[in-house]
């Protein structure tokens, strides 16, 4: 039986990610683990995460997850980053006074700001919390069977600004255009929570579970 490893670095709610994967991938084993050996042997790897980036990165480094992530990405197996697990793949984040991250993708994680407004000049709340539309800016296997501009559930105060437009596969507008999904080779990363995004989110996780890592 093939295995999907959900990397556990002590931050946040892994239960919902693993439950959602179990729901869509009944023919695969889902394990929540920090064990490098188990992660190494898995066919699919998910890096989730909620909370503050400084604590996340500290735990990722303390547990040696940074090495494991790099190895896994290099091995070519399908890899999915979610929310803070996505932000952790960028070069750095403005959160907590500036935190260096894993630098798998070129680009930065920026604060929405205290004076965020929409196109009509109306004040926007931060965190960006709730269901927003995702425009699919490229045709990636992860979007299969998901209508363009479907709504996904977001909760974040910092957003990704990627350096290479060709890596952006999804965008959402919230006061500014945010890069909410990136892909490069065998790695996909999303800002929203597919595990909390009902049918569209479950479809995305199913697509990931069935993906061979080729874009």
């Amino acid at each position: 039986m093939k295995t999907i490893a959900v990397i556990d670095y002590g931050m946040g709610n892994l239960h919902s990610v693993s439950k959602a994967l179990e729901h869509v991938a009944s023919n695969q084993r889902v394990v929540v683990t920090a064990d490098p050996e188990v992660i190494r042997n898995a066919e699919h790897v998910v890096l989730p995460g909620v909370g503050a980036i400084r604590d996340c990165m500290a735990e990722i480094r303390r547990l040696g997850i940074d090495q494991v992530v790099q190895e896994n990405i290099a091995s070519g197996k399908p890899f999915l980053g979610i929310c803070v697990g996505y932000q952790a793949l960028m070069q750095d984040s403005e959160e907590n006074g500036g935190v260096p991250c894993l630098a798998h993708f070129d680009g930065h994680v920026r604060f929405f700001g205290d004076n965020l407004v929409d196109e009509q000049g109306e004040k926007l709340k931060v965190p960006h919390m709730g269901w927003n539309q995702v425009k699919q800016t490229s045709n990636h296997p992860i979007w299969q069977g998901i209508e363009d501009n479907s709504r996904f559930y977001f909760v974040h105060s910092y957003y990704v600004e990627a350096s290479h437009p060709q890596e952006v596969i999804g965008e959402t507008v919230y006061g500014k255009t945010c890069h909410v999904a990136l892909a490069h080779q065998n790695v996909v990363a999303v800002q929203f929570h597919p595990e909390k995004s009902h049918n569209a989110g479950l479809q995305l996780l199913k697509n990931f579970a069935e993906w061979n890592g080729q874009a």
Partner: peptide
């Protein structure tokens, strides 16, 4: 494109 209001 905008954030939806939620019903809970």
């Amino acid at each position: 494109m905008a954030l939806a209001k939620r019903i809970i």
